[in-house]
Amino acid sequence: MEELLKGNYKVTKNIEIEAEEKSENNLTINFKKVALNSIGGSMVYVERNTLVWEGEEEAADKKNEIKSS
């Protein structure tokens, strides 16, 4: 295990880090960091993983429907 804490005595509890979760997180975090540092021109980054669109277009359509009826 990596020695996260360093000192002149041994601490009471070990610090456990779940390896898989850690590496997955690290990959996501590292990718985001590198991608954001490269932004420019065609290099863009989308932060979301999922997005359900409930935006203006639909709302405007509904408004028009009401008007025409």
Binding site: E2, L4, L5, Y9, V11, K13, I15, E16
Partner: peptide, 26 residues
């Protein structure tokens, strides 16, 4: 004194790990 250093800048492990560090001793 009894001293420990947690170098969050070097490790970059996030706040979950920092919480574990805070719970590692009295």
């Amino acid at each position: 004194h009894l001293v420990q250093i947690y170098d969050a800048n070097a490790w970059r492990k996030g706040f979950d790990v920092l919480e574990k560090v805070f719970r590692a001793d009295d």
